[in-house]
Nucleic acid binder design. Sequence first.
DNA 1: AGCGGTTATCGTCAGTATGACGTGAAATGG
DNA 2: CCATTTCACGTCATACTGACGATAACCGCT
Lengths: 226, 226
Amino acid sequence: MDYPVFAVTVDLVVLTVRDGGLHVLLVRRGLEPHLDRWALPGGFVHADEELAAAARRELAEETGLAEPGGHLEQLASYGAPDRDPRGRVVTIAYLALVPDLPIPTAGTDAAEAEWRPVGALGLAFDHDRILADGVERARSKLEYTPLAAAFCPPEFTIAALRQVYEAVWGESLDPRNFHRKATTTPGFVSPTGGTTEGEPGRPAQLFRRGDATLLNPPILRRAHGA
Amino acid sequence: MDYPVFAVTVDLVVLTVRDGGLHVLLVRRGLEPHLDRWALPGGFVHADEELAAAARRELAEETGLAEPGGHLEQLASYGAPDRDPRGRVVTIAYLALVPDLPIPTAGTDAAEAEWRPVGALGLAFDHDRILADGVERARSKLEYTPLAAAFCPPEFTIAALRQVYEAVWGESLDPRNFHRKATTTPGFVSPTGGTTEGEPGRPAQLFRRGDATLLNPPILRRAHGA
DNA sequence: AGCGGTTATCGTCAGTATGACGTGAAATGG
DNA sequence: CCATTTCACGTCATACTGACGATAACCGCT
């Protein structure tokens, strides 16, 4: 039996929350095809490498960080026959949610790297579609899982957590109701005992991630049709 | 630049509901490796073929049906370096939810095909893991989407729909509360006007799928830890 | 026809979750 | 010291859910 040969890449949708908005990590391509265009970070999977390991490796190479308390999961695979002019390339996209990082350092095959607000960006390949899928995945995961905390540093306030929801969903939430929901949902967050200092207003309690993997009951956004 | 070469396959987790239980379509392998062992149906992606098209083709080949009103979606990709002794093979798994079909016909490279209750089956390759992921995906999709109807014929009763939930979740639901929920959730089901005939008990109204793609509010199962 | 069994459908009611919003607490910066 | 800011907690009406009673409309049997 014989069969067609493929190249396999991983691409990363790395999301973070900066100044109240959802941002994605992009790199400017330093190689053909799509030279100089913006794209998601990614690269070829090595000959004897796990897919998830390849994703972690690319993440570390592009950001200079080895998983800073964030979250990494497989998103989906894309393999349209004409998606890459070099030949038949299937890419496994991964979704990473990370705290706001100092600034990404340019990697090996990327001339530059930077955070860009998500939206209609004209990215290389089919990366606009992959990004849209990643954003939608993040939006719905916030409803049913405690993953919002992956966008926060190890210790955070309820207000910071709420701002994550507001940035990712693009809607504002009532601070008092959100506080009640976050603190009473079992396993979502647990208090560290510390408080903020030096901020304007009353000091806020600090929390860390709880041990739940699923929020029950979930935190539902308003009807988001289709 | 050079890069490693891969083979790419699609594997299918085809689920249906039969006599009150969730069943998966398995084939007995007619080729090495894992000759004669049970496995998920699947095969190599052709040189110029979309991934989803390959999944549909394999589904048609294995079951003799071209999407009988069911549902097909990408599940996840699996690419451990040693998952296939023939070499580096990445598989894109697809999840199909279909109505109870007469009986699958054996395909080209499968000696036999049959429905088996899901559970701890000792499948070839990493197919136990893929199956488990598919079942979990189906369980959670029933909560937030109207996909339960994909397991039913075009017209069905509320009781049939409830039995889908009971089979997939493995728990029993109150018929009266489920009836209220299914009929009042906007876009879930719409009445055809017809009723069942010849069945024991009071005749039931017939429904077809509504036009919603998301259930709001969702139908949540009881706390399913982890 | 009449009757018991079966299933569908509708209704009630208490407990819980949610959204809207009022109010005091505890800090900061003039 | 006072105005401002943000946190934290409380109240209340409404909606949703789960438990379960009651009735409707068919079956098969005698």
